[in-house]
Design a protein around this nucleic acid. Sequence first.
DNA 1: ACACGGATGGAAACCGGTGTCAAATCCCGA
DNA 2: TCGGGATTTGACACCGGTTTCCATCCGTGT
Lengths: 338, 338
Amino acid sequence: MAKAQKPTINDVARLSGVSKKTVSRVINKSPLLNQATREKVEAVIAQLDYVPNPQARALALRRNFLIGLIHDNPNAQMVLGVQEGILDTIRSTEFALVVRPVDRHSPTLLDDIHHFIEQQRLYGVMLLPPLSENDELARLCRDLGCTVVRMGSAKLDDEAHLVASNDQEAVSEAVAWLAELGHRRIGFIAGPDGFRSARERELGFIAGMGRAGLTIDPALLARGDYRFESGLEAGQALLGGANPPTAIFSSNDEMAAGVLHAACERGLRVPQDLSIIGFDDTAIAAHIWPPLTTVRWPIRDMARTAARKLTRPESAAREPAFFPSDLVRRASAVPVQD
Amino acid sequence: MAKAQKPTINDVARLSGVSKKTVSRVINKSPLLNQATREKVEAVIAQLDYVPNPQARALALRRNFLIGLIHDNPNAQMVLGVQEGILDTIRSTEFALVVRPVDRHSPTLLDDIHHFIEQQRLYGVMLLPPLSENDELARLCRDLGCTVVRMGSAKLDDEAHLVASNDQEAVSEAVAWLAELGHRRIGFIAGPDGFRSARERELGFIAGMGRAGLTIDPALLARGDYRFESGLEAGQALLGGANPPTAIFSSNDEMAAGVLHAACERGLRVPQDLSIIGFDDTAIAAHIWPPLTTVRWPIRDMARTAARKLTRPESAAREPAFFPSDLVRRASAVPVQD
DNA sequence: ACACGGATGGAAACCGGTGTCAAATCCCGA
DNA sequence: TCGGGATTTGACACCGGTTTCCATCCGTGT
């Protein structure tokens, strides 16, 4: 009841005996202001518990302090990690995070997003894979006056706004690790066609095999769509062959879980009979049996940097845009046994 | 370049030869308006591709069209499900969803949220468990002028704003199912003390056992904190006893995965040697081996309703606030074998 | 003691909408 | 043809900030 009405800049001005403008100067930390005046006003602000109305500010400044997270659920763990990372950065600022899950196959995708950005007058947007690979979408956002950060796993054309892990190298390292464990017949499950991340991981596999001096057996190659079921099928195909692999690298954890599933079905023991490595280090990786060796994306760090690039482009412009992924060695990959 | 400047209500007014106010009436679908005038203005709006500035609106109306989702990550799947559910409802409205992950153990939790709501002038907030069990927090939000919806798993005091599943009944049903499969020694892993959901599930277990005419052996009771590791420990404890259970009900999926883990460690086969049932139907449930029989919360539906209650309280007031959970029968629970 | 330039602070307009209230217009019966 | 109530419409103030422009005020140099 005490706060029947929130204090406004006028209240502050009246109580401290100065004009609105002066209060505004205090709020905005204008340098040309008498120290005594500033302190006086600040005292009143503190006393009144005054918070500037962001709507009014947004209106006057013709810009909003909303940053949008647009995504088509790559996976829950990742989306949430990104949200937390962004919040780490903007928590104590006037920015807020508004989320917008979308369906990337919707025919009205671009229109919807256009309308969303325009309606909310977003300050900036962050795009998550696979949406971040859509150049047309990024251009649209930019045309609408937003700064854009795209989170991806490869170098994109527009380097200024990119925050990326380095999938290729990480996969290559993972394959090297398998080779080091003595595996020679290594299977690979690729991600869906058209995904940049899938392509990167493929290239990483090829590079890793090359570096280890191993040959790639086409019979040990399969392709999935990043979902559990596709991993299951791919696993069945690979393990059902005449000369099955002793290790399989899967382009993401969910498909790796599918492979594990397929192995169990065939009565294979993991990791004794089959080593498996996944990618993403989602929650599932640590919680299946055996715990999955996988590649960890530093999602939260990336999101923090992304948010900095969005909200403080001047100071974050020179921050590195590349984040190395690293291999989390758990129990699903062991030396080859015969 | 064409859109050097977004059209304003003034542009629309000028071009259609009416006053701002009339345009405003058109936008707000005021009923007292000549049909011809309305059409004329609508034509201009369409032609100009005019979208009202939400900041100006928010300022004039003294209310924003932002609804806040405040949570301390109960689990990623659930948070994302809620976000999607909310978006289902508000997608084509002027509302936007702003998210705010918090740390419920932070000493400044209430202050932070107070500041957040006040700063963003939220229209309404949605609280997820376990935050939704914090009455003080709910009161704070309400005092700040927000409508509040709490998503929970039990009847709370404030029924008007509650959207809940019915955990107790669901667990009871799950236990009945185990009894039907012939299990008599059924273990139970409770959630953390102080969580309403944990309490509900416990009561459900007790009720279920009672209905099935089974006795509860204190040696088959354990308590975890909803995380994987605690499930692992609880599983080890229960399975290491003199007279181990043939089935275990775990108060959530993550702990169930831990139990599975513990069983594997001891060389038990699941489900032949041990049946397991979880709760929540998170992604992990379907992706471990064997696929977990579990209880599904209709999260997305609940969130849709919650969003309706937030944004259209008048029309959603009479919508039911209870959603039945149901048992998803997968492979981890089978008839008892000896 | 006086003119002068930079530092400070205020009045008023503006951002793009909405509320109030009265004026203008319409319709109909007398 | 006119009065009077109902329907439409517009002028103007206002929401709570920022910006522009101008008036003071101060210390200095001479």
